[in-house]
Amino acid sequence: MKYFRDLRLVSNNTHALKALKSISSKTKPMCAIAIAVLGLSACGKSPDGNANNSGLNLNLSKTSVSGLSSGGYMATQLQLSHSETIVGAGIIGAGPYYCALGDIAIALGQCVNKASHSIENSPFIAQYETYVKEGLVAKPSSVSDDRVLLIHGKLDDTVNRTAADLLAQQYRMWLPESQFRYVNDQDFGHHMPTVNEGSDCAVSEAPYLGNCNYDGAGEILQHIYGKLNPPVEVKDNAALKHIDLGELTDLSGTSISDEAFIFVPQTCADGQTCSLHLSFHGCNQSSEFVQSAYAENAGFNRWAQSNSIVVLYPQIKKSMMMPLNPQGCWDWWGYTGENYANKQGPQIRAMFEVIQALSSTND
């Protein structure tokens, strides 16, 4: 089972992934997690005859999300849909909830590099309130105790400042002032700002990590969780694994790849109670475009290692056919269906089921 223990082996071994599917199809989901993530060589009966469903011991009340660009839109959608579980979000380079109004033409016309002179929050808020009444997103009382950090760089010409400001306005409606922070005064391009990884801070280019002398991941996690232990360097990202999400939930119709990255600190692998953070890549930033660059170098793993936080990096598959998604973006305009931004959305449903499966200790 050594192929399931090390990202460097699994990432270049399609036979290993096929073997994982073969194994996990005959085992319970928690056994699949134990094999794929924890590197266990067996999953069955323990010496005392009890079922050995070794898995992650996660405190769901400390689940958080983050995302860049389309991943930022997704982070907002998942947080608002399931804020009874998700305690906070970090959003980089994204616009308001429901900005696209379910239409790709509107998305391109007002939510990315172009700014419509008429863009305003009223139709977006109206749809959100309709979803609240229909029970398709979390109750506002559940959202109101979350903590959110929004980052939008002054040099971001991919998502316009008007759109980012409208998202800030939304969160100021939903959260007390002390729980929301808007960083909009830094010379960042459209990328995840890091301490020393990626391209020049002013440039927006693959792998969309900015060498900005700014710890975006640390700012996000400490805003959500409060003061944390200092980050530590992660040698060779040995704790970064592959996991097959298709064994945890039905991914049909979602465009979510079976294969995801997951960072599991040794304390969490050893059974300590840990928090869970999901980080969503942006367009052109999935493993099909940048391999494991985002998962390895966005900066979250350094903090996760010293603070017992499991970090999941799900991936979107690009598509040149219907649903057309050539850049591998998360759905924030409706390519998976009209409910893309609420609990019934295929991607939101799947990711919430993955959260539940990862945290379950019994099948």
Rank of each mutant, 00 (worst) to 15 (best):
Pro314Thr: 09
Cys111Gln: 10
Ile316Gln: 14
Gly72Ile: 07
Asp236Cys: 01
Pro323Thr: 09
His223Cys: 05
Asn52Lys: 09
Leu312Phe: 04
Val148Glu: 11
Cys99Leu: 08
Pro230Val: 12
Leu80Cys: 04
Gln285Pro: 01
Gln305Tyr: 03
Leu20Val: 13
Phe261Asn: 12
Thr130Gly: 03
Pro231Lys: 06
Ser69Gly: 06
Ser287Thr: 11
Leu68Tyr: 00
Asn307Ser: 08
Leu358Asp: 11
Lys343Ala: 15
Ile91Lys: 04
Ile243Pro: 06
Leu136Arg: 14
Lys139Trp: 00
Ser11Cys: 02
Asp103His: 13
Gln356Val: 11
Ser286Met: 04
Gln77Met: 04
Ala51Arg: 01
Asn325His: 06
Ser359Trp: 05
Gln127Met: 14
Asp331Arg: 01
Tyr182Val: 10
Trp303Leu: 05
Lys26Gln: 15
Ile119Met: 15
Ile35Cys: 00
Thr76Glu: 14
Gln169Ala: 13
Thr361Ala: 09
Ser359Phe: 04
Leu20Cys: 05
Asp145Gln: 13
Gly246Val: 05
Ala19Pro: 00
Asn13Ala: 13
Ala295Trp: 03
Ala202Leu: 08
Val290Thr: 15
Ser61Thr: 14
Asp250Trp: 09
Ala19Phe: 08
Met173Pro: 00
Asp185Phe: 05
Gly271Ser: 02
Gly55Met: 02
Glu219Ile: 08
Ile23Asn: 01
Ala202Gln: 08
Leu9Val: 15
Pro140Thr: 08
Pro29Tyr: 08
Ala51Thr: 04
Asp156Cys: 06
Gly95Leu: 10
Ala298Lys: 01
Glu296Tyr: 02
Glu205Cys: 05
Ala105Phe: 11
Tyr97Pro: 06
Asp156Asn: 08
Phe300Ser: 02
Leu324Ser: 10
Cys212Arg: 07
Cys329Gly: 12
Glu353His: 12
Leu17Asp: 13
Asp6His: 03
Glu84Phe: 06
Tyr98Arg: 15
Val203Phe: 07
His190Ile: 04
Leu312Asn: 02
Glu296Asp: 14
Trp330Lys: 04
Pro123Cys: 14
Phe124Thr: 06
Leu175Val: 11
Ala100Ile: 11
Cys31Ser: 03
Ser292Arg: 05
Gln186Glu: 10
Asp157Ile: 06
Gln291Pro: 00
Ser287His: 03
Glu233Gln: 14
Thr254Val: 09
Gly299Asn: 05
Thr85Gly: 07
Cys43His: 06
Lys28Arg: 09
Cys274Arg: 06
Leu7Glu: 10
Glu205Leu: 08
Glu120Thr: 14
Ser83Phe: 01
Ser11Leu: 11
Tyr225Ala: 05
Trp330Phe: 14
Gln272Glu: 15
His15Ser: 12
Pro47Ser: 07
Gln127Cys: 04
Ala19Ile: 02
Ala304Phe: 04
Ala16His: 06
